[in-house]
Design a binder for these strands. Structure first.
Length: 591
RNA sequence: GCACCCAUAGCUCAGCUGGAUAGAGCGUUGCCCUCCGAAGGCAAAGGUCGCACGUUCGAAUCGUGCUGGGUGCGCCA
């Protein structure tokens, strides 16, 4: 086993104990108590749901019973006897259908606290990703206007997921795909042209089908500054391409600024337009053709929802059904130009050729129908080597004053990212956006997210951290050394109260939780964990009101205080680490 | 018609890639506190995990078939 893995296991107590279990099983096999060569991959060590069952539980006896040809309880008892000889295991007893419940020596929990203080916010970092290159494509909003609230959630999820994967050992690239190659950017150009005419004192003709938003007025003014009156009364052929580039450029500047305000920085911006004329699209399609996955054919009309103007038509199709899709998909329009799918294929082929080991796309839920064909394309073009995971982001419903919130400060009909961040702040926005799994709708209530109460999870988690800092401040004032090196020297043997052990157990779960969240590409788990961690901490704090022995600062007893403060400090460190992944700034003090 | 997503306490939602008596917050009920260890605390009640079969020692979790809601379904991205 590589040294890195070993090092990580020492930080992850669950991994360490699992290793103890599998080593004990191997020893039993060596003695002949178990058959040799059993597959141990299904053996797990996890926190039991009921803390009364112990600190950790393993299912080893149950999953091995059948392949070993032995009764679960017999295996469990042999394993228990073996583990009891391990000084790290205080109690091992068999329960239920064959669970082995373990209670650990308190020194292990104290070791976790020291690990946290030694590693700081790197505690919980994992080598799970083993340095593999993963590309996370997210936002990818059309460059035809400012980002609206619908984009915010995707931006936050993508960014937090990127942080999470980096924390878990992946080499992450954050990428934005600019859809600047389709018809919508010509519409943008024509809309901007009307604003340009307006800037020159003419009446703009914002006809049906153009973008009416006020946000294009500055674009018109900038065009006037650049071109003066030279483009007035010129035919579209003269100005379309230039104005299109100019306007999309300005839109992208605005989008970049919006993302920055939200705390999101992309590593790579890829352009759809740049794929045209370079032969990349043709090459991607040609590659598929070489696999016999491109053909000329006629699609059946969808049953039950036949368009009025349906007529059978021969078109160029991608045989996506060969890679799990339901029907084959057109890549070329009847006029010979590419469908939107073709450059997307080329773009994903581009990502594959750049050497990524895994691809992740964050899409809006309305793109659900696009998932299978995209996966089919990546599967075909990577020879099945590169997995593509697509996360669909459900709607955000805004609320204010108990009513749906729809107004915008801008003239458009949508709420912009800026509207949201200006009112709620980036930290609050980011946290709340992660308090739901990606595929369920989320309510965002401007009143509630800013409330300073237990009901608001952002406040609740931040408050826990602020309390930790308050303890440290008070302790320092009382003359107790609270820097990490001093705390690391504290004797923790007295910190064994059940409530304190519960706190340590929760902290010890952090490395395990990081891996679970990273494995599933599920950043929301971090937010939920932080809430639970904060809850545990507030609970312990509150018990200090009634039971002075549980207070972190013990009057007149610097040594005991230091030990208990270590527990608080470790909690604060993990909260800071978790908030760091979410992209939320921990606050030192509540105001 | 087909595909994908969702369905868990009155409400809003978690649920560890199959584990033990299914959790949290809000709300409800009861008790406590008015102390800057402050922006409340403790406890209780509340569930056929949409329905029905199936796989398994064991299912909210996996499979099949339904019901209800959402999204989408050839020259829009």
């Amino acid at each position: 086993m590589p040294g890195q893995q070993r090092k990580r296991d020492q930080m992850n107590l669950f991994a360490e104990i699992r290793l103890a279990v599998t080593e004990a099983l191997a020893a039993l096999a060596e003695e002949g108590a178990l058959p040799k060569g059993l597959d141990l991959t299904a053996v797990s060590v996890e926190p039991p749901r009921d803390p009364a069952h112990g600190d950790m539980a393993t299912n080893a006896a149950m999953v091995l019973a059948k392949p070993a040809g032995l009764a679960p309880r017999a295996i469990a008892e042999a394993l228990a006897a073996r583990l009891m000889a391990d000084p790290r295991i205080a109690v091992a007893d068999v329960a239920g259908p064959g669970f082995l419940n373990l209670r650990l020596a308190p020194a292990l929990w104290h070791g976790v606290l020291r690990s946290v203080l030694q590693s700081g916010t790197d505690f919980g970092r994992s080598e799970l990703g083993a340095g593999q290159k993963v590309n996370v494509e997210f936002v990818s909003a059309n460059p035809t206007g400012p980002m609206h609230v619908g984009h915010v959630r995707g931006a936050v999820v993508g960014d937090a997921l990127s942080n999470l994967l980096a924390f878990a050992g992946w080499n992450v690239t954050r990428e934005y795909y600019i859809n600047d190659g389709g018809a919508q950017v010509n519409v943008l150009a024509r809309s901007a042209y009307e604003r340009y005419r307006e800037a020159n004192g003419l009446e703009p003709a914002i006809v049906e089908g153009l973008y009416p938003g006020d946000y294009l007025i500055p674009v018109g003014e900038a065009l006037k500054k650049k071109y003066g009156t030279s483009l007035l009364d010129q035919p579209e052929e003269v100005w379309l391409a230039d104005i299109r580039d100019f306007a999309t450029g300005m839109m992208m500047d605005e989008i970049r600024a919006d993302l920055k305000q939200l705390g999101v920085t992309m590593d790579v911006y890829s352009s759809e337009k740049a794929l045209y004329g370079t032969g990349e699209i043709e090459a991607a399609i040609q590659t598929l053709r070489g696999m016999d996955l491109i053909y000329e054919g006629v699609l059946e009309p969808p049953k039950g929802k036949e368009p009025d103007d349906w007529e059978p038509r021969v078109q160029t199709l991608f045989r996506s059904t060969a890679h799990g899709d339901d029907v084959d998909r057109p890549v070329m329009k009847s006029d010979g130009s590419w469908t939107y799918f073709a450059p997307d294929i080329a773009y994903h082929y581009n990502k594959v050729r750049r050497g990524f080991d895994a691809l992740i796309d964050i899409f809006g839920a309305d793109h659900g129908g696009y998932v299978k064909r995209m996966k089919a394309a990546v599967s075909a073009l990577s020879g099945g080597r590169v997995p593509l995971d697509i996360k669909l982001i459900q709607l955000v419903k805004l609320w204010k004053g108990g009513e749906p919130f729809k107004m915008s400060k801008r003239a458009g009909t949508f709420v912009t990212l800026r509207d949201v961040v200006d009112q709620a702040g980036a930290d609050v926005t980011r946290f709340i956006m992660l308090t739901r799994k990606n595929d369920v709708a989320l309510d965002f209530d401007f009143d509630k997210v800013l409330e300073q109460s237990k009901d608001n999870p952002v406040f609740y988690v931040q408050y826990a951290n602020a309390r930790v800092n308050s303890i440290l401040r008070k302790a320092r004032d009382a003359g107790i050394a609270c820097d990490d090196p001093s705390l690391l020297a504290a004797d923790l043997t007295g910190v064994t109260h059940e409530a304190e052990l519960a706190m340590m157990r929760k902290i010890a779960e952090w490395p395990r939780l990081v891996e679970i969240a990273a494995r599933g590409n599920e950043p929301h788990r971090i937010a939920f964990y932080l809430y639970e961690l904060a809850s545990e901490f507030h609970g312990l704090w509150n018990r200090g009101n009634d039971e002075p022995a549980l207070r972190f600062i013990q009057e007149g007893n610097a040594a005991t205080s230091a030990a208990k403060i270590t527990l608080a400090r470790a909690t604060g460190v993990v909260i800071a680490a978790g908030l760091g992944i979410l992209g939320v700034t921990p606050v030192e003090e509540m105001r």
